[in-house]
Design a protein around this nucleic acid. Sequence first.
DNA 1: CTCCTTCGTCGAACCGGTTCGAAAGCGAGC
DNA 2: GCTCGCTTTCGAACCGGTTCGACGAAGGAG
Lengths: 342, 342
Amino acid sequence: MNIGEIAKRAGVSRSTVSYALSGKRSVSEETRRKIQQVIDELGYRPNASARALANGRTSTIGLVFPPAGAHYTGMQLDFIGSVVEAAAAYDYDVLLSPSGVDSDRSFQRLLAERRVDGAILMEIRLRDDRVDHLVAENFPAVCIGRTAHPDSDWWVGLDHTALVEACVHHLADLGHHRVAFVNRPEHLLRSGYESAHRGLDGFTKAAAERGLTARTYSCGDDAPSGQACLERILHDDPATTALVTLNEAALGGLYRGLAVAGRHVPRDFSVTGVVASRWAETVTPQLTAADVPAEQMGRLAVELLVERLGHPDTAPRHHLLAPPISLRASTGPAHPRTGSDS
Amino acid sequence: MNIGEIAKRAGVSRSTVSYALSGKRSVSEETRRKIQQVIDELGYRPNASARALANGRTSTIGLVFPPAGAHYTGMQLDFIGSVVEAAAAYDYDVLLSPSGVDSDRSFQRLLAERRVDGAILMEIRLRDDRVDHLVAENFPAVCIGRTAHPDSDWWVGLDHTALVEACVHHLADLGHHRVAFVNRPEHLLRSGYESAHRGLDGFTKAAAERGLTARTYSCGDDAPSGQACLERILHDDPATTALVTLNEAALGGLYRGLAVAGRHVPRDFSVTGVVASRWAETVTPQLTAADVPAEQMGRLAVELLVERLGHPDTAPRHHLLAPPISLRASTGPAHPRTGSDS
DNA sequence: CTCCTTCGTCGAACCGGTTCGAAAGCGAGC
DNA sequence: GCTCGCTTTCGAACCGGTTCGACGAAGGAG
């Protein structure tokens, strides 16, 4: 059931079938109908590998996936979903590439073996080998996140600095003086993980500006770590009345820690941070947070990539997003704890 | 940088390079070294499309993704991650196919255009066109979930009936008499969604066996729907003291509804169900639940598929998993509400 | 009636691999 | 010395598309 078979049954040459399908040269109405009829009868679809070999385009984009074995967060899932959906709208398939332990191997696979026309990278680091590599080869790629030298790349990113600053200002406006920052795990910070660094910067800066007493913590990406982290916070400074977090996966644990410590949210303690709205709404009380527009970011990344694929030598473009804080139910005015603890 | 270039620089023919690489015929140690040296110098990797065209294998498996635009649950994310990881171990890439609105188009794309060697399907329905289609074509596929005629398919599934039964027995053992079942959304039930149906069956059967007063509800896949559903439950029968749920995404809303209604978990109300452990641990109190072994299921699915690809005409194989209930903190003995409500 | 376009179609080459049959080189056996 | 068999290498065909140059027929202009 290849193009030769169709040609034979339609009584024309292979090239005529190809042109009838692609429309790159005119074909008489009559033969076009005949060919279409044969194709419909046999349910023919052109072989993707052969097509890719011949015209050099695979109609596939690679999505470089967070390290395998890690704790995926809801945000990442939303990215993946929206990327797949947006790509389908442009007739692209999405190939997942685990950037796991031997990330090089699967990465090489994508690029050097020409499995994809372009790539979207998640989980960017400030200094990122993968990005350097792609830029050096001028390979069409778009990052979800920014490196330290963002002008030479294509990316769509979140202004974590501004978002965390906004969270701190929100808390300061409510009268909080002693606040904590719950960051992603230590090893991500050390490896230069973008959002962790920029978020931390924003926190430190805004806390200084507002004259707050601030402490920062790293916390594992899971609920038990969140609970432990909260215990540490209250142990280090029992007078803490609010926290800001980037750590979506630890959120449930932070809440549990507060409940265990007898701190009511938002009466005794305010919580805010940067979390996708869909997940901010699953906790009780619902989280006042900067809404990560994961769906939009995935879509924008695909749009940028498609544009770049269409116009290979355009100057880099980017989108820096700074979604507003959605006021929900997890923050309130500070009530300094008086007397002994409950 | 193709095989011809390598051949030229190594002073041999293209076929010799090919054999040196594949090892399908012997090549003298000397020429093999020479070829390898040239390859290392130039960083050559064979073109995937050409290879796929020539030998008929793409080294890619398709993962048929839940409908686009739906609310993804954490479980699904875990599946995807584990499938990608397991596939990488067998040197397969994973191509995502959204089975969205015009699922046929992208589905056809995968199969008819030969983009993948095999496929893994998620979100199975009891009567599933996609599965029928694949079985009819004898296309190598493995389902995560069972259809109504499971003997002719390859699948790895969860015994939702048994799991929900176990949940009901657990509640009955604790002395609960009036229990509710929170299912997936109505439209999924209507479309024959497997876990929703089997779970419901298990609930109904076990509740009858134990002589419980039981009500069943459909609930949207998000927190607000969960909260609304819980209100409905307490409105319909304020004496309800426990619920079983399959609806992971609504769980946060159910908890919130209980908090709003002043029912303490687990003192006044027990909650249990079927939820991946990683997510069961993020809520407070942690959910006593049958742990969905998403990671294991993804891995098993890949293993079955690889096996099927290796031995095309083996009889169908499957794995039916029935993980145990993990006792956490969300269930307790029934204390019939006495007097007026709080 | 010829000359020049335009339209529709065909054959051949090409994309970059794999694979098969055959041939060349070489030592062993008779 | 000749044949046989083994190892190593080569050339050609093939996978299933796309694309380019050319060619015949039809139509219009002169």
